[in-house]
């Protein structure tokens, strides 16, 4: 029997059905209307979330889809950020600086990929980690990059929008993030994305069906780094000031936490992970400010721990959440989301 579905394009289009289109449109409208309703502070939080989304998309492509671990993504973000600042200082218009940052970082990704081709597991972990470490050490020594002191990031000219700088910047970041999501989605649905996943699941079979492992691993490293570079560029703009300590090993770990929490290999996961973890980090930063709970925690700390060290609770909880996710929901927030969806579909039966 021939199957009934003849228009296979349904599987390629962005929105599965009218309902999905509707909700996406609502979300988009909301995002675009936001600057007119909320304080700048909230916009900066969303900016940070969005930047993390872009890094997570790229990292997930490499880790979740291609199966190659990276503990050095902060290094790529740093390269993107510094490239942008240098170019902006040289008077290059932002759009070119952004593109160049992505491309330069992507090139570094390929360069890191070359020695990493044959490496697996802990060996790859060390190679990428070493890369991240090298980037910040070298930047710290370069006077034209501001050394340890860092550099101010020039403001870009967004006056033509007629909006406040923060508002315009918000739009820039949001638009680029949305484009990044769509690009990743199309990439993953394509022959290239499939090849990545094939390498992850069985490199031997992948090569036997004609996938050039070298080429596609380098693609994956390059594209992943490209995203990190773009994110670095945006991050620099949003922070207004950068120095090498921002891009530490801890930041690389943080990115990894985002994609694991969100869901390895899933775009929805990258987005959800970045949003939730950014929010969580901000909340936990001043954990004692949380009503009731904060007081109790402070009392507890005074009695059994130290009151000055109470902010460290955030590390403890992040670690604990990470373990819980791996143990109970290996697909992360995305898995949780899938399950709720199924649950609601069946409801009320």
């Amino acid at each position: 029997m021939r199957n009934l579905k003849t228009d296979y394009f349904e599987d390629l289009q962005l929105f599965k059905d009218g309902l999905q289109l509707f909700w996406s449109a609502v979300l988009l409208l909301l995002l675009f209307a936001l600057p007119f309703f909320v304080k700048t502070y909230y916009l900066t939080i969303i900016n940070l979330m969005a930047v993390n989304v872009v890094v997570a998309l790229g990292l997930n492509l490499l880790v979740g889809n291609t199966g190659q671990i990276s503990l050095g993504h902060a290094g790529f973000v740093a390269i993107g950020a510094y490239t942008t600042v240098l170019l902006l200082k040289a008077g290059v218009p932002f759009i070119f600086a952004l593109t160049a940052s992505g491309l330069v970082t992507g090139l570094f990704g390929v360069l890191l990929g070359i020695p990493s081709l044959k490496l697996e597991g802990p060996y790859l972990a060390i190679a990428t980690l070493a890369f991240g470490l090298a980037v910040t050490t070298v930047i710290g020594r370069m006077d034209f990059l501001g050394g340890r002191m860092g550099m101010n990031v020039p403001k870009i000219s967004l006056g033509w929008t007629g909006l406040k700088y923060d508002q315009s910047l918000y739009y820039v970041i949001i638009i680029i993030t949305i484009l990044a999501v769509i690009a990743t989605r199309n990439l993953l649905k394509s022959r290239i994305g499939r090849a990545f996943q094939a390498i992850r699941d069985s490199d031997i079979a992948a090569s036997a069906i004609g996938i050039n492992l070298t080429k596609y691993k380098l693609y994956s490293f390059g594209i992943s780094a490209f995203f990190a570079g773009i994110a670095g560029s945006l991050w620099a703009l949003y922070l207004g000031f950068i120095n090498p300590t921002l891009f530490s090993f801890i930041l690389s770990i943080n990115f990894l936490v985002i994609i694991v929490l969100g869901g390895l290999g899933s775009i929805t996961g990258s987005v959800m992970g970045a949003i939730v973890l950014t929010y969580l980090n901000l909340q936990l930063e001043d954990v004692v400010e949380i009503p009731i709970l904060g007081d109790a925690l402070l009392r507890f700390s005074e009695l059994f721990m130290t009151a000055t060290g109470v902010s460290n609770v955030s590390w403890f909880l992040t670690g604990f959440i990470l373990i819980l996710v791996v143990l109970f929901e290996p697909l992360g927030l995305y898995g949780l989301w899938l399950r709720t969806k199924i649950y609601w579909k069946r409801w009320p039966f």
């Binding site: 880790v63 694991v260 700390s301 902010s311 909880l317 670690g319 990470l322 791996v326």
Partner: peptide
């Protein structure tokens, strides 16, 4: 961990690392 991938296990150890790090900072400042 049920049917863990190597990455899953690595992440567990990273989680444990963060927990211990946070605990030490909390306990000893």
């Amino acid at each position: 961990a049920k049917m863990p991938t190597p990455l899953n296990l690595i992440v567990i150890t990273i989680g444990f690392q963060l927990m211990l790090y946070g605990f030490a900072g909390w306990k000893w400042g």
